[in-house]
Amino acid sequence: MTLQPDAKRRSDTAGVHRTPVSPVPLGHDVTVQGLKKSFGATPIFQDISFRLATGESMALVGANGTGKSTLLRCIVGLIPVSGGTVEVLGQHVNEATPRDMRRLRAQTGLVAQKHNLVPRLSVLTNVIHGFLGHHSGPRYWSQSFAPAAARHAALAALDKVGLAHLADRRADRLSGGQSQRVAIARALVAKPKLLIADEPCASLDPSAGEEVMDLFFRLMREDGVTVIFTSHHMEHALSYGDRVLGLAAGKVRLDATAQSLSVKDLRGLYD
């Protein structure tokens, strides 16, 4: 597949449409080089390379099956890579021990397509679980035993997503939009440096989806969190991402600033 970028944008010789990303402000939170992943004999992607600056927001776009979700999971070490290197917050993910990975993950957050809350537990308990990377053990298993500071911090996180009044409600009694907002509160409560969001509004209706995305990125920007998110909404990719990385046929086909792109450019990834 070949992209046809607008005339105002440049293409490099490797067939990847690139525009220079804004000058690196503080360093890089994520560096991916020559990353490969295959499941058995089936290759998912190969030779994926990119760097993500601190505080930057990157949209990962591409058709179904191009490995966007797999790439996100490789970055936080939830699944092993088949080749290449991933460095996140100064930690080489490939070489990390389980303890190193736990330490690294304590500084990252994940919001998935489905909220993945524990259904039978209260909203407040679910948010307190966001601290488990920093504080392991029974005191953080339930809001009933949690230290006062954790309970207050969790309630403040819920307040930020507008759900403090539902703190004692069971998670399985919430609507889809409310659940995703609780998942955002859980991901943010421990103040992560990097946040991974895999189609955070995929399971929501358009109105709830817009609401969740607005809230999500407002909070990210307030806290200066680095974000990688996937989305099939081209408008979301362009309005919420500082940068857009496009995958097609298992390779990077587009790496450019969002400002330099239009919806038409992204459509080419789905052809």
Binding site: R102, R103, N116, P119, R120, L132, S136, R186
Partner: peptide
Amino acid sequence: GPSEALTATGATRMDIAACATVPASMP
């Protein structure tokens, strides 16, 4: 899903079992 979400926060296996697996298996 809930176990993966807690793994991504850096929770230990015991935390994940206690906070996600056992409550989800309770019914």
